[in-house]
């Protein structure tokens, strides 16, 4: 249930992000989702890609600071209060969320990528409440 996310350190230089996406494109690696957490000086790019290990390797070869982190992808039911219910469950179980970001998928559903302090506990809680999680198998080809 845990999926692999690629995190990359980027300093705020023009064209740096395009350089990165160019490298991934050249290696035929698909980006399914991404978000950037930025500060004044630098940003942390987080993304879900096809073939994360290969992506990490080629980016490292090009001098990027890359890390593979574990996250879960939770399918958010497409109805009012859908996201709220999920977050309520997590909050009630005292699982601290480090960060999350969401993206829409083709079928009108949304997927939330969540990173929590304790990933194991997060997965347990979500499964216990029958929330649908992305599996590794389908996530890399989103």
């Amino acid at each position: 249930m845990i999926i692999k996310q690629l995190s990359v350190f980027l300093d705020n230089r023009t064209g740096r992000l395009a350089e990165l996406t160019g490298i991934l494109a050249a290696n035929d690696i698909n980006i399914s989702a991404f978000s950037i957490a930025d500060t004044a000086d630098y940003g942390i790019l987080r993304m879900i890609v096809g073939r994360p290990e290969l992506a990490a390797e080629v980016l490292k070869k090009h001098g990027f600071a890359v890390k593979i982190t574990e996250v879960v992808g939770m399918i958010v039911p497409h109805r009012p209060g859908g996201l709220h219910k999920a977050l309520q469950v997590i909050s009630d179980s005292n699982v601290a969320i480090d960060y999350m970001y969401a993206f829409a998928t083709g079928d009108c559903n949304a997927t939330a990528i969540i990173r929590a302090e304790s990933m194991q506990k997060l997965v347990e809680v979500l499964q216990e409440h029958k929330l649908e999680l992305l599996k590794e198998g389908d996530v890399y080809q989103l």
Partner: peptide, 15 residues
């Protein structure tokens, strides 16, 4: 320089 070994993907860690 942020080297791989101490790169964290959390802003609060880097800060």
């Amino acid at each position: 320089e942020v080297e791989e070994q101490f790169f964290s993907d959390e802003v609060k860690e880097l800060e």
